[in-house]
Amino acid sequence: MATVDTTAVAEKFRPDRGTLLWGALIVNTEVILLLAYAALGSADLLSARGLRLWVYPFVWINASIWAVARTDIAPSSTRQKRLAAALAVGYFGVLAYTGGLVGPGHGSLGLDVALTSLPPGWAPAVTYNGMGVSLVLIPYKLIGYATLAYLVYATVLDAAGSAVTGVLGLLSCVSCSWPVLASIATGVVGSGSGIAAAVSAGSYGISTVVFVATVALLVWRPFARE
């Protein structure tokens, strides 16, 4: 029976001094942005729900930055890289669709960019409808889904070259389905519904917990090459 090397796990997640300094700089910048936005006239930050809604995007963004910085791509053949890239792109597409970033177009052609009407992390947001497709592009979700796709790419390459068979290794990526299921279960952002609906609807707490847990598992990748 395989055992977990707790020392290796702790080393994987323990931040070094440089990481802590950069983390403090990023968090301070985000706090300044939120305070500046609140000072422009929005009182929503004073409510518990408003505070959570404002903070969730930065949890996604910060977790994404940390994950990419902590992830190394294993040396692999060109064929393995192409396969991993195809799976990662397909995974991003599924996330984008179930998460409401992309959907079928309806109604008249339209393009809108929200710069100041939404809190940082939600803005600048872009909505587009036309040519059979609708887009609701929210920065923190784009960053988060792109990060998950990148981590899946790294996970596939690790699984392909691990002492464990590739199939068994990829089974540990069952958590990759969590963000998809969470998006469906919480009804996050109906395609073409507009930015206002994106901010006001859905349970973002559940989605955020699922996202952070998935990122942590994909960064850990317990079936590393031997």
Rank of each mutant, 00 (worst) to 15 (best):
A86T: 09
G41K: 12
P179K: 02
V59W: 12
L40I: 09
A149Q: 06
L51H: 05
A114S: 14
L181A: 15
Y97L: 14
A88L: 11
F58L: 10
A8N: 07
L95N: 00
L51E: 03
H106R: 13
V113A: 15
E226C: 04
P75W: 07
G194L: 04
D44P: 01
L217T: 11
I26A: 05
Y140M: 09
T208Q: 08
I195Y: 00
L168F: 10
L25F: 05
L25H: 06
L40W: 08
K81S: 09
T127G: 02
K81D: 11
T155D: 15
V126A: 05
V164I: 08
S193C: 05
S117V: 12
F92H: 01
K81V: 13
S117E: 10
A96S: 07
D112E: 07
R49C: 04
V9Q: 07
A36M: 13
I61T: 02
L25P: 04
L45D: 09
C176W: 06
V209Y: 10
R70M: 06
V180F: 02
A67Y: 01
S207Q: 15
L137S: 00
E226W: 07
C176L: 14
R82G: 10
Y153R: 13
L46C: 11
P75R: 01
A163P: 05
T214A: 01
R14S: 14
A74H: 04
E11L: 12
P119T: 02
V94W: 11
V94G: 05
G130L: 00
L171W: 15
G121V: 02
S191R: 09
V167P: 07
A123G: 15
T6G: 09
R225Y: 13
Y128M: 08
A163T: 10
G166T: 07
S175K: 04
L21P: 04
A185W: 13
M131E: 11
A63G: 12
T127M: 07
K12L: 03
S172H: 14
